[in-house]
């Protein structure tokens, strides 16, 4: 859906993006991660056509975003990390205004406004002034405004910042639902454990470069990293695990083993049964929630330890 080619962006005194190439697949939720100052927001703003790059191109379903920004904007939406809503307007007016501004025909305004409010749990707040809403509700309103015209591609920059745990969970559910409805999402965030819950792909940025791009799950990759806790260490566990169907990338550390496993719940049950029969003292099996963070940190360290060209 999105194809970024040789993208370079410069501020008057500094090059911020260095020859970026990346692809965002249709129907995916792609996490854009990286340390502060890596260039995530600049890349996002170039992708949605709000920043004109020094060179390079961004294609949205084959259309050059910077050649035809208006056409592309009708089908995409962007929510900045620091967003604003019109405080004097009611929630209904905010949504109605955005729907009109994004070209929704008059006859459909009411239905799309109510659908967006329903999705974000704002139905009972439609008559409240947006200035009177809490931070979490304002965030929901901002997301509702972003999706009210039902874009095909939604870009969220740090959407979970400032939200309480319950609101973050709701946000994760919403993003999964939006993807289920056919939307493609690009989400920039620092909260890697939460991204892992719903992202299918990951782009890692450092110093204005994409240093890693990988599929996490979804159609392309169904493998999940599992964590096996044991009551006591097992001799030759590495070999034992690698002999099991669907298991790869085994790492054993004392009483804990971590590995990638491709298979459904019954396959997972079969794996456990085999391991118990082989005498492994299993104390627990869970999805490894820190896998994304591990991958991220490993990539960052690898990049940092790689010698850089003097000119870069």
């Amino acid at each position: 859906m999105i194809d970024v080619k040789n993208l370079i962006f410069e501020y008057p005194t500094k090059r911020v993006l260095h020859d970026i190439d990346c692809v965002i697949e249709k129907g995916s939720i792609t996490a854009l991660v990286g340390p502060n100052g890596a260039g995530k927001t600049t890349l996002i703003r170039c992708i949605v056509g709000l920043h004109a790059p020094y060179s390079g191109q961004v294609f949205f379903d084959g259309d050059d975003v910077h050649e035809h920004p208006r056409e592309c904007h009708r089908r995409m939406a962007y929510l900045s990390d620091v967003f604003g809503v019109y405080d004097q307007l009611s929630v209904r007016q905010c949504l109605s205004y955005t729907a009109r501004a994004y070209g929704v025909v008059s006859i459909k305004i009411q239905s799309v406004v109510e659908a967006a409010a329903e999705r974000l749990g704002l139905t009972d707040r439609l008559h409240e002034k947006s200035g009177a809403l809490s931070r979490g509700l304002r965030q929901r309103l901002a997301i509702a405004q972003a999706i009210v015209h039902e874009p095909e591609f939604l870009v969220l920059d740090e959407p979970a910042s400032g939200l309480d745990p319950e609101a973050r969970h709701s946000l994760s559910q919403l993003l999964v639902n939006l993807r289920g409805g056919g939307m493609t999402l690009l989400v920039s965030s620092h909260i890697l454990a939460e991204l892992e819950g719903y992202c299918t792909d990951m782009l890692i940025m450092r110093d204005g470069r994409i240093i890693d791009s990988r599929a996490l799950k979804g159609a392309a990759s169904r493998a999940r990293r599992l964590r096996l806790d044991m009551a006591q260490p097992t001799a030759d566990l590495n070999t034992l695990l690698e002999a099991q169907a669907g298991v790869s990338q085994v790492v054993v550390d004392g009483n804990v083993a971590s590995f990638l496993f491709e298979g459904d719940l019954s396959a997972r049950h079969g794996l456990l049964k085999n391991l118990i029969e082989d005498g492994v003292a299993i104390a627990g099996l869970s999805e490894d929630r820190v896998a994304l963070q591990d991958a991220y940190i490993a990539q960052i360290h690898e990049y940092d330890s790689t010698p850089k060209d003097a000119g870069q």
């Binding site: 709000l50 208006r70 009708r74 995409m76 962007y78 620091v82 604003g84 070209g103």
Partner: peptide, 10 residues
């Protein structure tokens, strides 16, 4: 912080 939304509108 509402200008980006307006710039991307129709």
């Amino acid at each position: 912080k509402t200008w980006d939304t307006q710039r991307m509108s129709s």
